[in-house]
Design a protein around this nucleic acid. Sequence first.
DNA 1: GAGTGGTCTAGACCACTGA
DNA 2: CAGTGGTCTAGACCACTCT
Lengths: 184, 184
Amino acid sequence: MPLDEKSPIPLYHQLTKELRENMENGDWLPHSLIPSETELCEKYGVSRGTVRQALSQLVQEGLLYRKQGRETFVAEPKITQQLNKFYSFAQDMREKGLKPSSKVLQNEEILPDSYIKNVLGLKEKEMVYKIMRLRLADEEPLILEASYLVEELFPDLDREDVEKVPLYDIIIKKYRIRITRKVE
Amino acid sequence: MPLDEKSPIPLYHQLTKELRENMENGDWLPHSLIPSETELCEKYGVSRGTVRQALSQLVQEGLLYRKQGRETFVAEPKITQQLNKFYSFAQDMREKGLKPSSKVLQNEEILPDSYIKNVLGLKEKEMVYKIMRLRLADEEPLILEASYLVEELFPDLDREDVEKVPLYDIIIKKYRIRITRKVE
DNA sequence: GAGTGGTCTAGACCACTGA
DNA sequence: CAGTGGTCTAGACCACTCT
């Protein structure tokens, strides 16, 4: 299906749609390679910038993933998209005029019981952060969540941070630090 | 703070960091205009492509928003960001070649203890779904999450569903049903 | 070494908004 | 109208991976 240059729809949009369909139809299976950027340029007669714009969109949606020096792969549909779906869950609510919110109820450093210890693969006497949050839609409680974070990976989790900032902000922050360390 | 061309950190990353700090420091207030792309090009001595790459990142994180034919504004730091941040957390991992994943460890219908009952505003003897999930990055456990879902709001939560499909898919599904009822 | 994706440049034309 | 962001091109060099 060639792209339509005269269409008011941008080329990269047309291209994402095209590529998305390849995956939905099952033509491209999870973990299989897709054509290289250069090949896609030739096939659709567009510049590499446009191809990259289209691919970035799909990577962002979690449908594709790339590897340095290797190629671009089709992502596994379940895990990856779960996170994007969560995004659209709250998105959905907002579109319907409901207000998603969350409250931090507890935020403590605790010695985990043996079940948690085993699951998280902790050493003896290793502590975890326990954070309890209530998720609401329009002030109505939907879900209560207890999160246990491996302390080692979130070294200086500030109690005030959790109150003020959403949990995942902190995780990102810590996470970035962790990666940096790994690279150094 | 000029950008460092010799640094191994890409220019657009340096630029996003720079701009992010402007907002965190309060130099750029919500709903105020930021310099135009052309001005940023001149100020930092980079091409427009690089500036746009940096700005796109921040728009994606929900820190900025753009208007056609107008300019780029600083966003209000509200709920929206929390979700975008969460989104970019997994995004980040994927970009760095790490694989975010999750495993369902438990999925049961239980009679909640009094704490959970109070928090969720449940009636006497009302049941909840308890779902325990482990979040990993590259097979390394990061977080253990226990979720307690109000049964009434997720009426026919299928045990197999949870195994196969990500939790939030189900929530969305149920949630849509509920909203439909409300609207009707 | 050849091929890949990651970054970056310097141009270009367009649709849109505001004065 | 001049200025903005939205799209697109055709080059370029790099770090990385595989063979």
